[in-house]
Amino acid sequence: MAACPYNARSFNWSEPPHSPGERLIKYSPEYPVPHRVGTVEKCMFCAHRVSMGRLPACVEACTNEGMGAIFFGDRNEDVVTNGKETVKFSEMIEKRHGYRYKEEFGTHPRVLYLPAGPAHVHKKRA
């Protein structure tokens, strides 16, 4: 918690709410499910959904809301998707000037950010 320079970890300060579905899942060391009080968690890109061939919940929700701003994929395959369009990862990062937070720390985070593209800038000015 204290060491992460991105505040990416979170802690179950009290007994977290449990969904009925979650109660049916058997505990596996692979996923932080069911959630437990007194433990640290971190986003693992919904590994349980990915293993079923689905996109992480945040990506799916974002695309369903018509924004499609979050892309997810496999770096080794160099492919990312937001559920609607599938693009070449390295090309998109290059073209849209993708960046990471605190590059100088050398922590090589796997989350990159895309600045607002020309279309967005145009909209803002108008």
């Binding site: 918690m1 204290a2 505040n7 970890r9 979170s10 802690f11 179950n12 300060w13 009290s14 007994e15 009080v37 007194g38």
Partner: peptide, 15 residues
Amino acid sequence: KDGLATTGMRDLVSW
């Protein structure tokens, strides 16, 4: 009994 929620600590200030 109730977890560390009984303290003033939260995700940002966890110490």
